[in-house]
């Protein structure tokens, strides 16, 4: 395998006495879209800011492109596009001005591509930042991260503030970047975003890396809440014995249940009756984490989690 693009070894950061991240080790290979999933305060931003040398680790080390994140920071950042988790841009500058300024301290900005990005994200490049809504500001942040086609994109909560349509456009951008050979490290606390985008996912909780999983393995273990509305009440027992289906509740014409992994059996069974509506509730992060927590002790005995 080629050398990892990002490598993090026993990375630890304390803010004074406050826990930031503890003893993280993982690596991201070239060409993958690596998801970094964790609830608020888990340590996602801390990890990213350490990799970018904005903050200095208490312990451990990070390498990017095989080079020391601290010592070779300047060269490393030539090829990184970064979107901060809490984006601040100059209030009294327009989008175009902001991008021009950043383009002047960075090289390789393709202005045709900037125009294309602006159009696709429907960004307003002529308003002062102070007048933009947070979603519209986020678009400027995304454009500046993508604009010189960096070989590594580091995006901290990229979808925050984006409406569903723009999220779709963003997914396409990542897909194109991947085809283009770029690598992406994307943090999020929203499972569907990570599921949609990534090949591999690191799961972080309370500063510790709980697992690193291939996306298919993650999906196979995800617990989803589903609600199906039928035209008439279906027989409940038909659903109770399906593979992976739990906690089946039937209220008049509505069937509620939880499903682990593939939905295939359930959907095929439901299709035998007249379906009016299907509502899928976003899987609960805590439930996923609980699963990893429960298995942690066991796996430690069996020789550690399946880190890649």
């Amino acid at each position: 395998m080629s050398e990892p693009l990002i490598e993090v070894e026993e990375l630890t950061k304390y803010y004074g006495k406050h826990r930031g991240i503890i003893d993280l080790s993982f690596s991201v290979s070239e060409g993958e879209v690596f998801g970094y999933l964790g609830p608020n305060g888990a340590g996602k931003t801390t990890t990213i800011r350490t990799i970018l040398d904005l903050i200095r680790p208490t312990d451990g080390k990070a390498w990017v492109f095989g080079r020391d994140a601290h010592l070779d920071g300047e060269e490393i950042r030539e090829n990184i596009g970064y979107l901060p988790g809490e984006l601040s841009l100059f209030d009294d500058m327009t989008g175009v001005e902001t991008l021009k300024y950043l383009a002047n301290i960075r090289s390789g900005v393709d202005w045709d591509f900037v125009d294309e990005l602006g159009e696709r994200l429907q960004a307003d490049l002529d308003q002062d930042m102070a007048e933009l809504s947070s979603g519209n500001k986020q678009k400027i942040g995304l454009i500046q991260a993508f604009m010189n086609r960096p070989s590594l994109l580091i995006l901290d909560e990229p979808t925050s503030g984006l409406d569903p349509l723009m999220q779709q456009e963003f997914f396409k951008l990542i897909e194109e970047a991947r085809k283009n050979g770029q690598t992406a490290f994307v943090s999020s606390h929203i499972l569907p975003v990570v599921e949609r985008l990534c090949n591999r996912v690191g799961i972080i909780r309370e500063g510790k890396l709980v697992a690193v999983e291939e996306i298919d393995d993650l999906k196979a273990g995800v617990l989803r809440s589903l609600e199906i509305h039928f035209a008439g009440a279906p027989p409940r027992e038909r659903f109770e014995n399906l593979l992976g289906v739990e906690e089946v509740v039937l209220e008049e014409n509505r069937l509620r249940c939880k499903v682990v992994g593939e939905l295939d059996d359930l959907v095929k069974e439901a299709a035998r009756y007249e379906v009016v509506n299907v509502i899928s509730h976003e899987p609960n992060l805590e439930e996923i984490f609980l699963k990893y927590y429960e298995s942690e002790g066991q796996e430690a005995m069996e020789g550690g989690p399946n880190n890649a």
Binding site: L52, L54, G73, E74, E75, R77, E78, I80, Y82, P84, E86, L87, S88, L89, F90, L102, I105, R106, S107, G141, Q144
Partner: peptide, 14 residues
């Protein structure tokens, strides 16, 4: 303090 150095220092500058 406004967070403006984040975007700036993520550029290839020291």
């Amino acid at each position: 303090e406004k967070g403006l150095l984040n975007v700036l220092l993520a550029n290839p500058i020291t």
